[in-house]
Each structure stands twice: as C-alpha cells, then as structure tokens.
C-alpha cells in the first residue's frame, strides 16, 4: 500500500515535469512560428509549376526512350542468339537465372542478419 502511494506520488511528479517540459517546448516553438516568412507572388508559383511539369515530361520521355532502346537491344540479342547459336541462348538464360537467384538470396540473408 505504502509502495503504491510512493509510486503514485512519483508518477504525479513525473507527469508534472513532463507537462512543464511540453509547455516550454510549445512556447519555444511559438517563437519560431512568429518569424515572418516571405511568400513569393502567385506568378512565381505558377512559373515554378509549369517548369516542373515540363521537366517531368522531358524526364518521362527520356526514361521511356532509354527503356525501349535497351529492351530492343536485349530482344535483338536474344532472337539472334536463339536463331543462330541456341547454345549461347541457353547459357545466357542459365546465367540470368543463377545471377537473379544468388542476388536475391544474398539480399535476403543480409536483411535477416540486419534484423
């Protein structure tokens, strides 16, 4: 009973100290909130949005072109190897599978070790 009372008093003391700390934090952050912030005009924001959209579109087109070029290159290689040297095709496929499996296994075991 006495122990419970002591714990209750200690908790009350802790809560008071916590709420005082929180009050201090809020007051300190309030000071930052009162710093005036210069907001650019509407035209600046509009220009920024237009520029960003243009850049995003350019990047999308560039990435897609790169993807299609690489895809075409790989596909051509595979088709040529399949039609002219099937053994090369099989070796390439086997190497691809082994590489993917070992890479995935390695990453997975690293993650498990990290945990």
């Amino acid at each position: 009973m006495k122990k419970q009372k002591i714990v209750a008093i200690e908790n009350e003391h802790l809560n008071k100290a916590d709420s005082r700390t929180i009050d201090e934090i809020i007051q300190a952050l309030d000071k930052i909130d009162h710093i005036p912030v210069y907001s650019p005009d509407l035209h600046w924001f509009e220009q920024m949005i237009l520029n960003e959209k243009q850049q995003y579109q350019k990047k999308l087109i560039r990435d897609l072109s790169l993807f299609f070029i690489i895809a075409a290159f790989i596909l051509t290689g595979i088709i040529v190897s399949l039609s002219h040297k099937p053994i090369v095709f099989i070796v390439l496929q086997a190497a691809g599978i082994i590489f993917t499996a070992s890479y995935t296994g390695l990453r997975f075991s690293r993650k498990v070790n990290d945990i």
Binding site: V37, S39, L42, F45, E46, I49, L50
Partner: peptide, 14 residues
C-alpha cells in the same frame, strides 16, 4: 489547372 495549383501553394507556403 495551374492557377489553382499556384493558389494552393501560395496559401500553404508560410
């Protein structure tokens, strides 16, 4: 709508 976007950003910027 770019203008709506700009208004939204201007309102929330500070």
């Amino acid at each position: 709508d770019h203008i709506a976007f700009a208004i939204l950003f201007k309102e929330n910027y500070p």
